[in-house]
Write a protein that binds this DNA or RNA. Structure first.
Lengths: 161, 161
DNA sequence: GCCGGCCTCATACTTTCGGGTGATTTTGGC
DNA sequence: GCCAAAATCACCCGAAAGTATGAGGCCGGC
């Protein structure tokens, strides 16, 4: 029981533990080396350089070890052939799953045509600020940071032609 | 002449150079601190610890900056409605009728993926200014004034997927 | 060799975007 | 009628995009 708790503890915290142990070990080695470092006084910089390299390596190793691989979802497009050019049906499910409003969708559509915010504002008879607000919310909901990304994503999700 | 060679050199080796400079700077600081370290004798371990942390951080930073993120690919099937099944062939006629160069086309492609100029620069290993120049020329040749328009027009002309 | 096109980069400047905050008005449903 | 969501607008600020101009390096054709 205790063993399993312990091992589980070790398993969960092995990286920090390892790191701590490395530090401790290093300090021991330091203590031992202290004498000859003081003797060979000039070797100090080299020694520090060593430490630096060592820990840079450790940092690199840690990062590679810890960073979880980014999960990338690849859409395998299973093609469904259509005869008549079905005029494009928006994927309504996606739209209201993301909570995208009618106006926002409209703005996205005009964005996809390459219009600037000002032009969109003129087209919709609203102010530039309004368009900005809509696009901001849109980006937030679509989890993108630029209009180009929004357009790209929108097309892939079939919410714009 | 000399300037540009030098700056290109710097640009290509900026990471190693930065690293080297950091090391050099650190050593200077060390030299300066040496006295008080010897005085406050016991602070030595703390000091080493600091170095260790510093360079661990540096290692982490380096890794994140340099290493391509590992990706774990998840395949998701998705139905896509298509009319013709041809896999896309770029319309070369249009491209060189407009006088669009290889590099410019490359930039356009990355734009279409929603990348920012900076991201494109990183991807192509060139400077931000270069990407701006390319995109400017591209817009001129395509007779558009914004990247969104370029992408839209590019897709309609079949010069990008 | 030299010219032109392409690629590269820089500097300086203007415009457009996008984030954040706050506020008022419409509107649709209960 | 009331409430919540949507739509409208404003202001500020920083970041990104785009314009203009100049310049050096590289390569292929003449």
């Amino acid at each position: 029981m205790k063993r399993s708790r312990l091992s589980s503890f070790i398993h969960h915290y092995k990286i920090p533990l390892l790191y701590g142990l490395s530090l401790a070990a290093l300090l021991l080695v330091l203590k031992w080396l202290e004498v000859r470092i003081l003797l060979i006084d000039h070797a100090f910089e080299v020694y520090i350089g060593g430490i630096a390299l060592l820990f840079t390596a450790l940092g690199i190793w840690l990062t590679r070890k810890l960073s979880r691989p980014r999960v990338e979802t690849v859409l395998v497009e299973k093609e469904v052939y259509v005869q008549g050019g079905l005029p494009f049906a928006i994927n309504e499910r996606e739209v209201d799953q993301l909570g995208i409003s009618k106006r926002e969708l409209e703005v996205l559509g005009l964005m996809a045509e390459g219009l600037s915010n000002q032009e969109i504002a003129d087209r919709l008879f609203v102010s530039l600020n309004t368009v900005k607000t809509h696009s901001s919310r849109l980006f937030e909901k679509m989890e993108v940071r630029r209009r180009t990304q929004a357009v790209e994503k929108g097309k892939r999700m079939n919410i714009i032609p």
